[in-house]
Write a protein that binds this DNA or RNA. Structure first.
Lengths: 156, 156
DNA sequence: ATATCTGCAAAGACTTTGCATGAGA
DNA sequence: TCTCATGCAAAGTCTTTGCAGATAT
């Protein structure tokens, strides 16, 4: 069981304890919710999504938890240009699912794609190495997004 | 004179008239200001920057003008993760200067880089073509950013 | 002449902060 | 027990909108 998904503690419990962070109901609810979806959720989406089951969890806690998860590297934060941040789990049950986004500039819809990832990975690895050395940066992450009009919005 | 920089009208006058947009003092001031800098400016940076010379130009107009320029494709809008948008001219006097950004996640500083652009261009062209066909998207733009710690922030 | 543009003030939207209470280890 | 986490309310920031007056063509 690669990432510890089973009947015991979720795999991220150790990660929390290692950092001195507490395992609380809201944090479990948020991580559980994110692990059950493959969409890009806003803070409010998450708040609404867990509200039926956990009505006591406030929007503030959602924001604070997401900030923590992003800092821990468990969650990625995206900006699709509509003024609200989107979040998604960095790794799913099947491990890291490397992908990027195709964002419609008209309706804001974002599509995941995984095409060309292998070639891309190779170029990115080289680029990261080169940039790290040239600019003395410690690169930890990258973002690639394509913008355009989705099929539905092209007709307009 | 490739882009019309000289003693006559700036090259973008025609572009404005072609769209039915008027050439006004604030618009000229903002485009002129952006063309004199190579940095990534926030709306307020621009407002402050032109305020000495054009004290009557309000922040609202800066926002409205930037929105227009982005829509026209004359200006790119970026998000470096600190909650305020940054803008830069899409093309300078020497034509399009294709580059991407290296963003420090600690201090927010953004560095332009143009390394690996040629290889990248080729891969991007193929990727764009493939994605356009597969997802029926009309891709018009892309964004690539690397995140990490800059040399100054690595010491901390 | 007239449709567009502008500035000010106010509103809007998302996110963060203060602080007393509650809960995990 | 004792520090960390939470919820609520309020504040903070960036950005957008309404509207009357000004401006470009």
């Amino acid at each position: 069981m690669p990432h510890g998904y089973g009947y015991g503690s979720p795999w991220w419990h150790g990660r929390f304890r290692g950092c001195g962070y507490r395992i609380t109901v809201p944090r479990q609810a948020i991580l559980d919710f994110l692990s059950r979806t493959s969409k890009h959720m806003s803070a409010e989406d998450i708040y609404v999504g867990i509200h039926k089951t956990f009505p006591n969890v406030g929007l503030t806690t959602v924001y604070r938890t997401l900030e923590l998860l992003v800092e821990m590297g468990l969650v990625f934060k995206f900006d699709f240009g509509d003024g609200r941040a989107r979040y998604e789990l960095a790794m799913g049950p099947k491990g890291v699912r490397h992908h990027h986004h195709l964002v419609c500039t008209s309706c804001g819809r974002a599509i995941d794609y995984t095409d060309f990832i292998d070639e891309e990975k190779e170029l990115l690895a080289r680029t990261e190495k080169g940039l790290s050395e040239k600019y003395n940066f410690r690169i930890s992450n990258h973002l690639i997004q394509f913008y355009g009009l989705c099929d539905k919005c092209r007709g307009k």
